[in-house]
Amino acid sequence: MDVGKRLLKVEEVRRLVGEDRLGRDAAYALARRYGVRLGKRLLVPSRVVEALLEGKLEELEKTPGVEARGR
């Protein structure tokens, strides 16, 4: 993962995680829940991707200042 890059596009997240492991719909659901919207772009913080890869996504939700936005 590019250390200097803090926000990733949905397709970048899929490439990092593995396109065979994270489908397009699931990636966008992840981005809507944990990501940020800049204009029309939906971006995912790199710490969310790291937590996903380490299996610690639930722990990230418990972190103060990190709120999952569900529908």
Results as ranks from 00 to 15, higher is better:
residue 31 A to G: 08
residue 51 A to S: 15
residue 5 K to V: 12
residue 65 G to K: 03
residue 22 L to P: 05
residue 7 L to A: 00
residue 15 R to S: 05
residue 37 R to N: 00
residue 58 E to D: 14
residue 48 V to M: 09
residue 34 Y to K: 03
residue 17 V to Y: 08
residue 24 R to I: 11
residue 60 L to N: 03
residue 62 K to I: 06
residue 37 R to L: 10
residue 57 L to S: 09
residue 14 R to C: 07
residue 26 A to M: 11
residue 68 A to V: 15
residue 17 V to N: 03
residue 70 G to S: 12
residue 67 E to A: 13
residue 4 G to K: 14
residue 1 M to E: 12
residue 15 R to A: 06
residue 25 D to S: 09
residue 28 Y to W: 15
residue 56 K to R: 15
residue 55 G to E: 13
residue 70 G to N: 06
residue 7 L to M: 05
residue 50 E to T: 12
residue 52 L to G: 13
residue 41 R to C: 13
residue 36 V to I: 10
residue 28 Y to Q: 07
residue 18 G to M: 00
residue 34 Y to W: 13
residue 21 R to K: 13
residue 27 A to I: 13
residue 40 K to E: 13
residue 16 L to V: 08
residue 39 G to S: 01
residue 64 P to M: 00
residue 51 A to M: 08
residue 69 R to V: 13
residue 53 L to I: 06
residue 29 A to Q: 07
residue 45 P to F: 14
residue 5 K to M: 08
residue 47 R to L: 14
residue 35 G to Y: 04
residue 37 R to S: 09
residue 10 V to I: 14
residue 64 P to D: 01
residue 43 L to M: 04
residue 35 G to L: 01
residue 24 R to M: 11
residue 3 V to F: 11
residue 23 G to W: 15
residue 13 V to F: 03
residue 63 T to G: 02
residue 2 D to R: 06
residue 11 E to C: 06
residue 12 E to F: 00
residue 17 V to G: 02
residue 37 R to C: 10
residue 37 R to P: 02
residue 30 L to V: 11
residue 2 D to V: 15
residue 32 R to A: 09
residue 48 V to L: 11
residue 5 K to W: 08
residue 66 V to F: 01
residue 44 V to N: 02
residue 20 D to F: 13
residue 69 R to W: 06
residue 31 A to F: 14
residue 24 R to N: 04
residue 18 G to H: 02
residue 4 G to W: 05
residue 7 L to E: 05
residue 65 G to M: 04
residue 28 Y to K: 07
residue 41 R to W: 01
residue 59 E to D: 10
residue 68 A to R: 14
residue 45 P to W: 15
residue 41 R to A: 15
residue 56 K to V: 15
residue 48 V to N: 08
residue 56 K to P: 05
residue 22 L to I: 05
residue 23 G to A: 04
residue 10 V to N: 07
residue 57 L to M: 12
